[in-house]
């Protein structure tokens, strides 16, 4: 039965170029570059904050987004390789999100001034931010999916979460270039919600996209 098939496969066995870290780095950084460019083109670059507190919040949201994106990117690379060496990898990214976004949000909610809570539900701006982050996420997510299709993932569920988290956090990092809101409550809640929402969407879409 398979002898003909084996003959054909062996005859077709030309040397191949293996998927490696350079390919991943090129894909992922290319995705981030497109994401940043699209934010600058469609939204523009924000002005520097006028107050020291505003600068602190801007640094915090940039650091938090980049930290989650970098951790996620390492995980996406590793999950493209076979084996079980990354068990609990996505848990660490979720923990990082809790530490860098949820914890400041909770502290600001209970310890901050009452008047700042009106920032939490600023409907029109929330949709605008989600749209911007979503737009910036698409190129990084696409690059990550291309990587996964070229690589050899064995834990599809974890890979799907990781791709969603890393690409959403990268999109968020790009959106920081524009985002004019320097409120811990607003950034903590809506950045986190958008990242987690995109990760959930990725979890359900990606398994259907990765096929051998």
């Amino acid at each position: 039965m398979s002898n003909d098939l084996l003959d054909k496969l062996v005859a077709d066995a030309a040397p191949v170029r293996r998927a490696n870290a350079v390919l991943f780095a090129a894909l992922f950084s290319g995705g981030i570059a497109i994401a940043a460019a699209s934010i600058l083109i469609f939204y523009g670059l924000r002005d520097l904050p006028a107050t020291t507190f505003g600068v602190s919040v801007m640094i915090w949201k940039a650091f938090a987004s980049v930290a989650v994106a970098a951790t996620g990117a390492v995980l996406v690379y590793r999950l493209g390789k076979p084996g079980r060496g990354v068990r609990g990898g996505t848990d660490k990214v979720f923990a990082l999100i809790a530490l860098l976004f949820a914890a400041p949000l909770v502290i600001a909610f209970f310890a901050g001034p009452e008047s700042h809570k009106e920032w939490l539900f600023n409907g029109a701006w929330v949709l605008d931010c989600m749209r911007g982050i979503g737009m910036a996420t698409v190129p990084v997510w696409t690059a990550s999916v291309i990587w996964m299709r070229k690589a050899a993932p064995t834990d599809i569920a974890q890979a799907s979460w990781a791709v969603g988290l890393a690409s959403a956090a990268s999109g968020t990092s790009a959106f920081v270039l524009y985002c004019p809101f320097d409120s811990v409550l607003y950034v903590g809640l809506w950045y986190m919600a958008t990242i987690l929402g995109i990760a959930c969407v990725s979890r359900f879409i990606l398994p259907g996209v990765i096929r051998w």
């Binding site: 390789k81 076979p82 084996g83 050899a152 051998w212």
Partner: peptide, 14 residues
């Protein structure tokens, strides 16, 4: 998909 395998990692899980 043979190009996607990296020899640094185990083959059988894949």
């Amino acid at each position: 998909k043979r190009a996607s395998y990296d020899p640094a990692y185990p083959l059988m899980p894949w």
